[in-house]
Design a protein around this nucleic acid. Structure first.
Lengths: 151, 151
DNA sequence: CCTTGACCTGAACCTGACTCCAGCTCCGAT
DNA sequence: ATCGGAGCTGGAGTCAGGTTCAGGTCAAGG
């Protein structure tokens, strides 16, 4: 790996769109890594850009960093991940994405009939049912809206 | 309004599925209100259940409490909101919901072709374009995934 | 060699949406 | 009258996902 192939943090900022603070944070959190110059400055391999793209996509879907790290950890160590490796990873998010879309569509379809009508006594509403565990628990549901969490 | 029509906080917890801590928080934040007994305990009107249902739906879509309050403030003061009033409110969210669904579908359709392929040099990818302002700004985007925020 | 802009670190801080807690009061059934 | 469960308060704590800051260090062009 020629040194000329390595990117400074500034270049990664430019090309990834993430601010340097986020890059350092991701490094602390073990989502990306960088080698260092003798003076201690970060030098990134090109591949980091793809990791960052993946992170951005995952975050956009609402996946937490822990899950992102877990996914990235499943990439083959040692060799550069192939196209196929990435495809496999993104397929996992795709199921999640499908679920979310489905949930949102259900919410949309229910919105008029549910909020608009009298059913919001809440007791029996299919959508807003308080029996909904995820909603009632309250504690763990941050990033993903309650309606979107699986169980 | 007969006193028997008023609900204790415990009843509202039961029927809305929100924990009491959330109800008190919403009251502090001005999203719901309650009268008090001479001893200072909360007594809720039935209508609060519908407000809470609305809040839950809005939260599920990813709308922040500030926006929810703003919407609720547009309900007619004085008289009990009619079905029509609620329908009008929920229609506003519906547009948002449509946008979100659209964004997620776009992300889904792009996921294979984008993450799976070589385009994630990031420089030109339609989806992950770092020119994407919302993503680059970083600061304000909490609840709604970056891809889902309107501009 | 020197300057200047890019980069470094750890720690503190931030926002949103709540939760938890201690210590106390209320109130309805017996 | 009593008692236990329901309710009250204000303030601190939590969690994710970062940002900001102070106080320095690196490295490349002139």
């Amino acid at each position: 790996m020629d040194a000329r192939d390595l990117l400074t943090i500034g270049e990664v900022v430019q090309r990834s769109g993430f601010p340097h603070s986020a890059l350092r944070y991701y490094e602390r959190e073990g989502l990306v890594s960088a080698t260092r110059t003798s003076g201690g400055q970060r030098r990134y391999e090109r591949g980091v850009l793809r990791r960052l793209a993946f992170i951005r996509a995952a975050r956009a879907i609402g996946v937490g960093l822990d899950d992102v790290r877990e996914a990235l950890d499943r990439l083959p160590a040692g060799r550069t991940p192939t196209r196929g490796d990435w495809t496999r990873l993104s397929r996992a998010w795709r199921g999640l994405l499908d679920e979310q879309i489905e949930a949102l569509v259900a919410l949309r379809d229910g919105l008029d009939s549910c909020i608009g009508c009298g059913c919001l006594s809440l007791a029996r509403c299919r959508l807003m049912n308080p029996g909904d565990r995820a909603a009632a628990q309250g504690a763990g549901a941050r990033l993903l809206p309650a309606a979107l969490r699986r169980s």
